[in-house]
Every structure is written in C-alpha cells, then in structure tokens.
Design a protein around this nucleic acid. Sequence first.
DNA 1: TCCCAGGCGATCT
DNA 2: AGATCGCATGGG
Length: 269
Amino acid sequence: MKIRINDDFDLKKIIDSGQCFRPAEIERGTFRFIIGENILNITELGGNVYDVDCTSDDWERVWANYFDFGTEYKKIRLEMVDFAATKPYKDFLLKALEFGAGIRILRQDPFETLISFIISQRKNIPAIRSSIEKICQRFGRRVGDVYLFPRFEDMQSLTEKDLEGLGLAYRKDYILDALLNVSDGFLESLEELSDTELIERLKTIRGVGDKVAKCVALFAYHRINRVPVDVWIKRALEDDFGGENVFDAFGKYGGLLQQYVFYYKRPQS
DNA sequence: TCCCAGGCGATCT
DNA sequence: AGATCGCATGGG
C-alpha cells in the first residue's frame, strides 16, 4: 500500500535520535518498526510517498498513532524556529532544528520503553541495542525472522539467573524490581496521572531515576514537555547555552526540543 | 588498549 | 538539598 505523508517525517532521523532501539533500516530505504505484535516494513519511494506492508486498517489503527500523525511536527518546528531566533543562543538552536527536521516523537509501548531505558543507563547506544535484542531473542515470541519484545507476562516470573548473559550487569536487579512493580495494570494506570505524578511513580522503581523516568514519560506517555537530561544534553547546556536551561523557555515543547538538541549534539555512530 | 556510555543509589556534607 | 563515588559490561 502506498501512502503520502506531508508532515516532517524522516525515518532515519527518527531511528537515530535515540528515542527507540529496535527499529532499523533493514535495506537501503526500507525500515522496520515493531510495536506489540505489529511489524511494519516501510520503504521510502521519494516525494513524500512510502510503501507500507500493512493494511490500511492497521495503518490507521496502529501506525498512525505510533508515528503520532495527530501532531503537526513541521508546524511546531517552525514555531520553535521563530522563537529560537529571539534567543542569544539562536545560532546553535537554529542549526539543531534544521539538522533534525523530520524527527518525530514516537508513541512507544510503556513496558518496552521502561525496560529499555532501565538498560540504557551507562551504556552506549549500540550496547543498549545489543542487550535489548538478546532479551527479545530469549523471551520474546518469534514472528518470521523477527522476535517481538517480550510482554510483561513473558517476563514476570524471571529470576536473576534467567537474566545472565544479556550484558545487563548490575541492571539485572533493576529489571527484576521493575517486573515486581509492573503488574495489575500499573503502567496503564499511569496514563491519567499528571506529568510530575507520573514521573514520581516511575521513580519508585529501583534503577529508575529522573533521567529514565523522563525518557519513559516522553517516549511512551508522550509528555513532550518533559526533558530527560543525559550526558549529551548536559554538554549542550554547558557548551552551547552558557549553562542556561533553554528547554524551560520552550515550555510545552521542551522535550521535543531536547530531542533535536540530542540528535544534533551526539556524534553519529 | 583504554575510555566512556541517553545514570543510579548510597553515602557523605 | 547538593556533591561525590562506585558500579559491571561492552562498543569503538
């Protein structure tokens, strides 16, 4: 099925912006995304046209939400460009907003996002991907040549021993504590909470601090005003913004701006 | 080889 | 409340 997408939509940038770990460019111009038990192969045909290997029903039901087509990213980006132009650090900001044009914030699965960002601490992105892929292969259901990310039910009775050999190191305990907490609709119940309450609840899980909680809030619960501050954002704040927290100034889009800055600041691997 | 990674919890002041 | 430190492992 062919589709046309007129808004900001750059698959490679979305994948390389550090918000997700499993999606990949499997052939030149063809990308694979997975959410739940849904697998999508999407190919760039040029001229804002894409080929997708799903039904129009699944596109509307699953993928339009996942790619957040209800939000106009180009419009927001241009608003941010106008606002950035009034700032003393505009040179860096304008370059970041241009460089990252096409980035969107995916609406990802909360359980996968939580486990993934617990793993992410003190790891580089290739190492994170490696650990997550091993988890999928060991505990996830196989669909063709793809392993789904395991559901909570697939992991709930795991012990520390089951988590060996996955490159998790001290994070094993954190994942086990997350599994203890994440039951009986815990993650679903967070949907209705305010941003600050959501983050506080997530931080009750061992191994979830401010940074990981904000990543989950931003990437799974779509709280696009929450700003995870990692080493790269810290560096940008010091190197490029004179220590001033620019993200506050952008208010409700702070988390989105954070994503542009992260993508611009982090060297491409 | 060596450095460092989308941090966190414990332990101080 | 804020600063410092150890942490296990793997990727570049």
